[in-house]
Design a binder for these strands. Structure first.
Length: 441
RNA sequence: GUGUCUGUAGCUCAACGGUUAGAGCGCCUGACUGUGGAUCAGGAGGCUGUGGGUUCGACCCCCAUCAGACACCCCA
């Protein structure tokens, strides 16, 4: 391999992409902290044993290897299992319920595809140690706020409950083992249609009568109240499912109180979700602009932490897929379209004026303005303007003999080409004013 | 992990198995004034993803490998 190359499924992020990613991460951090969540950092590497036995079939996607000492290590598959490890390990230091967020890369040895990579960023927010429906509702509220602040206008959060899924399987006469298979088929409803699902169910040995029952229940649609009411009737007699419906109702009541618009969520009994550790609420956000998988997902997993600790620790949380968010936002033109970090370019007129320009640029920086100077004092103004233009900087300053003599600085608007003089002492305030006006429009 | 397709200049793409692999855009230099975008003139840039094979001769055909796209599978 003579020419440099990326490892399969792992990407570089050049400045324009990285700026959007950072905008996303910063926005999510702000929302998380607005809700009082605390940051947690854990290593990318864990003992393989820590990750094994929690993910079901997905386990084969874990990157595993041995270190120099022959220890079996693994790259983390998500940030949830490490959270569970931390909760068990530091149980004495953590006051529960604990609201924590974590942002970082995880790794899965999958075949890369649209919106799917082997190294991908997730932003997680979880409430550890509470089984209250208020915790579930808080997570959904964070989800809604985050997507709204990022600029999404037409997303929907699908809500479901593992015990509704279980109940539907049970009243259709299936045992727990078969239910998983069935739900994998139902999860594809949007993609292959009800006929396709019917066929798949048949292939998996579900009787036609049971398949029809399942399809009917799973395709219930309408207002959350209507869907829950109908499920109540249909699942009558299945205690766990009835309890799940009550739980969803309580969550929705809390959502309403927190002002989450009803148009943002639906009860969708067909939502399955793959990760095997979920035990209660499950949800994911979808948008018509991204047919390939969900933007984020999550749910309640009350037993996972208990696999490390002795007692069970009820937990609910979500994970944003940063790479998918990024790709969708790019397609929709959401977020800042900056290609660089600086806003102002200070030219250097000639080798005699180097000091004057350097002094000026430091003043701008002290005033909170991101600014750069030319690095080659002997290059002409034309070349310097060109550099400023190519970088996408909004303003260029000229400080030549004429300006120096008059105690002025020329401010050039690189978009319009217009140029005006400002007194040397007023430059920073004038630029702040211009930049604020530009940001507002 | 399975299947299909793709890989040529920084980017988008040409080139019948046959001379020295081309074009547009971009990049660099100059015309050019104390000033970018426009125009004109010139210039740099390639072991055709990589490694084998077939052939007198390979960008082109065959095999392998790496990377990418799409559809499965699954998921963020």
């Amino acid at each position: 391999m003579t020419s440099p190359q990326n490892i399969k499924g792992m990407r570089d992020h050049l400045p324009p992409a990285m700026l959007l990613r950072q905008h996303i991460l910063h926005t999510l951090t702000t929302v998380f902290e607005r809700h009082g969540f605390e940051p947690l950092g854990t290593p990318i590497l864990e003992y393989a044993e820590t990750l094994e036995g929690k993910l079901g079939e997905d386990e084969k996607l874990i990157y595993r290897f041995e270190d120099h000492g022959g220890r079996r290590l693994a790259l983390r598959y998500d940030q949830t299992v490490p959270l569970a490890r931390v909760v068990a390990q530091y149980s004495g230091q953590l006051a529960l319920p604990w609201r924590r967020y974590a942002i970082g890369p995880s790794y899965r040895g999958e075949r890369p595809g649209r919106g799917r990579y082997r190294e991908f960023y997730q932003a997680d927010a979880d409430i550890v140690g509470s089984s209250s429906p208020l915790a579930d509702a808080e997570i959904i509220t964070i989800l809604t706020e985050s997507l709204t602040v990022l600029g999404f206008t037409d997303f929907t959060t699908l809500l479901n409950h593992r015990q509704i899924i279980g109940g539907i399987a049970r009243v259709s006469g299936l045992d727990e083992a078969a239910a998983g298979d069935v739900y994998r088929a139902i999860d594809k409803l949007d993609k292959i249609g009800s006929d396709g699902v019917r066929e798949e169910l048949h292939e998996r040995g579900v009787t036609p009568a049971a398949a029809e029952r399942i399809l009917t229940l799973v395709q219930l649609d309408g207002s959350p109240d209507d869907v829950l009411h109908e499920l109540d009737t249909q699942l009558h007699g299945d205690e766990r499912a009835i309890a799940a419906l009550a739980n969803l109702r309580a969550i929705i009541v809390a959502l309403e109180a927190m002002g989450v618009p009803p148009a943002c969520y639906r009860v969708a009994p067909r939502l399955a979700r793959g990760l095997s550790y979920y035990t209660g609420l499950v949800f994911e956000a979808i948008t018509a602009h991204w047919p390939a998988g969900s933007l984020l997902g999550g749910g309640r997993y009350d037993e996972l932490v208990g696999m490390f600790a002795k007692n069970s620790v009820p937990t609910v949380g979500l994970a944003f897929g940063i790479d998918r968010l990024h790709d969708v936002m790019e397609e929709l033109g959401l977020g800042p379209r900056a290609t660089t970090t600086a806003a102002v370019y200070v030219t250097i007129f000639s080798t005699e004026q180097v000091a004057a320009s350097l002094t000026l640029v430091q003043e701008l920086r002290a005033a909170g303005i991101n600014a750069i100077t030319a690095l080659d004092a002997s290059s002409g103004l034309g070349k310097q303007f060109k550099e400023a233009d190519r970088k996408g900087l909004r303003y260029a300053l000229v400080l030549g003999p004429d300006e120096l003599a008059q105690g002025m600085v020329s401010i050039r608007d690189m978009q319009s080409g217009a140029q005006h003089h400002v007194a040397r002492g007023e430059v920073a305030t004038e630029l702040c004013r211009l930049l604020a006006a530009g940001a507002a429009s």
